[in-house]
Design a protein around this nucleic acid. Structure first.
Length: 415
DNA sequence: CGTCCACAGGAATGACGGGCGG
DNA sequence: CCGCCCGTCATTCCTGTGGACG
């Protein structure tokens, strides 16, 4: 048994020696913007053409950009904007760009304060009315005499929370500017968000539209190959492993982010085991691992009564109680509530919770008809029993309830 | 072939807590 | 700082419905 100091010595040394697998992990991170974006040449060209007039002080259209997660929207926009900015600097053009992720930024106030800092206006972290921040932004912008290109990523997040007031102000700002101009690039994951917009805002905002289709397997493979070259040492990654990553991600919405996650986790697994290369098997394990982590994470963040419903279905399968239909589930659920000293929710609500858990994949639930005996939902666990136990391990109260024995084991409903 | 079970799931309304504007 | 407003979660009330049973 080595002394503890020696253990750490070894850990640190291994770390300092560098990884046998990874050359540069950063290339697999979500926020990494690569030097080339395979299969997005068209989009890059289009966006470039749309924004090029800015270099000469010309007017650009506002553009609305759509596409599901992991289709390269953000990467393409960041890429084009950074090239545009450096070109502008090179030729001494007064173009500025500003990229804001609305969801991460959080509130309207912070979005505007970001905009302010992009035109060198200082505002306090809090305390001002949003309209005041907006005014300061407008003044600062007009004074600075620039063509400002604002990219609002995940724009739907802010609309959902605050409505389209922010956008309305922003789309009309050009009318009040004398020396500067603004172009807006709105980026959204959600196609339906257009319906939430005021038609006036929509028409100014979407003078042009750009849609990002999901990648197919072979496109994903090209992306992975390119990143893998940067991220891994030569000869570490097997061809079949890349193909599998691409295929798995293609099956699931063609999400490049997902594909890169798979690759990264597969690499980490290989590294931890001290394996010389990344194989298909590592990828399969990575997929299980990612899914497993996701499930535990969602389970942990569940509200109490949702956990309780999950626990109820778990107990019903464990004790083979006849049919897990909503009425039976509700009865046992009430029993558990009583046992734990909680006030049960109504059946209507529990029915809703079951549906929510179904959407999350923690339960499987479908509507069936029992003819003479009514119409209901039949529900079963969507994840293995073992995972349920693991997910509740941190919650002592729930963990002990895993061993609870229901009062009526046979025909539950009749009691 | 009509009936009627056992709910599904929509709509309206209420309770509550947190953040925003004044 | 306070009140108000808004979003979220839950309840109440309701109408709708697939198909076995008689």
């Amino acid at each position: 048994m080595p002394r503890q100091g020696n253990i750490l010595e070894e850990v640190f040394d291994n770390f300092l020696k560098g990884s046998a697998i990874f050359k540069n992990r950063i290339a697999l991170r979500h926020d990494y913007v690569p030097e080339s974006l395979p299969h997005r040449e068209e989009h890059i060209r289009y966006l470039g053409e749309m924004l090029a007039p800015a270099l000469r002080g010309g007017i650009c259209s506002n553009i609305l950009i759509y596409g599901k997660t992991g289709t390269g929207k953000t990467a393409v926009v960041k890429f084009v904007l950074s090239k545009l900015a450096s070109k502008a600097e090179e030729i001494g053009s007064s173009v500025k760009v500003c990229f804001i992720n609305c969801r991460l930024t959080g509130t309207e106030y912070r979005v505007f304060s970001n905009l302010c800092s992009s035109v060198d206006v200082k505002v306090p972290f809090t305390g001002l009315a949003v309209s005041e921040v907006f005014d300061r932004f407008r003044k600062g912008l007009d004074l600075s005499n620039v063509l400002l290109i604002i990219a609002l990523d995940e724009i739907d997040a802010i609309i959902r929370k605050r409505g389209d007031v922010l956008l309305y102000e922003l789309t009309r700002i050009n009318e009040t500017l004398r020396n500067s101009r603004v172009t807006i690039l709105g980026i959204s994951n959600d196609l339906k968000f257009k319906e939430m917009l005021d038609p006036r805002v929509l028409s100014t905002l979407s003078e042009e539209e750009l849609v990002f289709r999901p990648y197919n397997a072979s496109e994903l493979q090209d992306i992975l190959d390119e990143r893998a070259n940067i991220a891994f040492h030569d000869g570490i990654l097997t061809d079949s492993a890349v193909r599998l990553c691409a295929a798995l991600a293609a099956a699931e919405h063609g999400d490049a982010r997902r594909a890169l996650d798979l690759l990264r986790v597969a690499g980490e697994l290989a590294e931890r085991k001290g394996d010389p290369c990344i194989t298909e098997q590592h990828v399969r394990q990575a997929q299980k691992r990612i899914e497993h982590d996701r499930v535990l994470e969602t389970m942990k963040s569940l509200p109490t009564h949702s956990k309780l419903v999950l626990l109820t279905v778990y107990l019903m399968t464990r004790f083979n109680i006849n049919r897990s239909i909503t009425g039976d589930i509700y009865n046992l659920y009430c029993e558990l509530c009583e046992e734990m000293g909680l006030v049960p929710l109504t059946q209507r609500r529990v029915s809703g919770l079951i549906s929510e858990l179904d959407v999350m994949g923690l339960l499987n639930s479908r509507v069936i008809s029992l003819g003479r005996y009514g119409r209901t939902k039949k529900t079963s666990l969507g994840i293995p029993n073992r995972v349920i136990r693991e997910g509740f391990a941190e919650d002592e109260r729930l963990y002990t309830m895993l061993k609870y024995r229901p009062r009526y084991l046979g025909d539950y409903k009749s009691k």
